[in-house]
């Protein structure tokens, strides 16, 4: 087998993380849909909050990992950092897509529109396009080294949009509400805070689970390319002895 070594360790950790995230996700969904009270003004649509906010957090976390891994790749030029960056970028892109979709379903009954060119929505859409570009560059760059370098630069630049998204509701007048929870205070009932915290934990565990799975796939892909390349070189040299 090509992929050996740490794969059994990774699959064990992956299994534990998968189980933990499934359990906490189920608890989080129960807390968000049943335990937490219905919002007096927004009604049940407010419960989208319990997946929308954790998915936004996971997307930001994923792009933060891309940012750090991209810097490490440009510095060390080690394969593993590019594998981490592209794995995390894909997960970040999936969750950013879901943040935009769930936000739209939340906005329709509350704002009366599916979409508005509000600062937070627009900067989030921009982030989505940046990381779509990240994968387009990878697809068209040609050799792997060039793809890794170009995408690392895009990953670093793209991450600077994350603090802009976060602060956009303070910097500009927006339809999107300001943060209702901070490190020191929470502007909502305790039951809602508990449900949100459990959902944040569940989605964070789920991100770690997905990272382990995706990283394993990316490592295997690179090893296959190396193996196929080495085979073709050997064939060219005429080392066939079988």
């Amino acid at each position: 087998m090509i992929v050996k070594g740490k794969s059994s360790w990774a699959s064990g950790v992956g299994l534990v993380l998968g189980l933990l995230s499934a359990i906490t996700m189920a608890i989080g969904m129960y807390l968000g849909l049943v335990y937490a009270p219905e919002d007096a003004i927004q009604g049940n649509a407010q419960r989208i909050f319990y997946i929308h906010v954790p998915m936004a957090w996971v997307a930001f976390l994923a792009f933060g990992v891309v940012f750090l891994a991209a810097i490490m790749y440009l510095w060390k030029r080690a394969l593993i950092w590019d594998q981490i960056a592209r794995s995390s970028a894909e997960i970040g892109l999936v969750f950013t897509t879901l943040v935009l979709v769930t936000g739209s379903f939340w906005g329709r009954p509350i704002w009366g529109t599916w979409w508005t060119w509000d600062a937070r929505l627009t900067t989030t859409l921009l982030l989505w396009f940046i990381f779509l570009g990240y994968f387009m560059i990878r697809a068209y760059a040609g050799d792997r080294g060039r793809a890794a370098t170009y995408s690392a630069v895009i990953g670093i630049i793209g991450f600077f949009d994350v603090p802009i998204i976060y602060l956009s509701v303070d910097w500009w007048r927006t339809l999107h509400p300001q943060a209702v929870i901070s490190v020191t205070s929470a502007n909502m009932p305790g039951q809602m805070v508990v449900a949100l915290m459990v959902c944040l934990l569940a989605f964070t565990l789920f991100y770690l689970y997905l990272m382990i799975q995706k990283l394993g796939i990316e490592r295997m892909k690179d090893q296959l390319i190396d193996y196929q390349y080495a085979l073709s070189e050997r064939e060219a040299e005429g080392v066939t002895t079988a």
Binding site: R77, D143, D226, R234
Partner: peptide, 24 residues
């Protein structure tokens, strides 16, 4: 389908990006 004897099989562990892509 490997046509090599085990001792001639290429190294399986990736060494980094010094190995060029097959597309090159």
């Amino acid at each position: 389908e490997s046509v090599f004897e085990p001792e001639h099989r290429p190294r399986l562990k990736p060494s980094g990006y010094e190995t060029k892509s097959l597309r090159d």
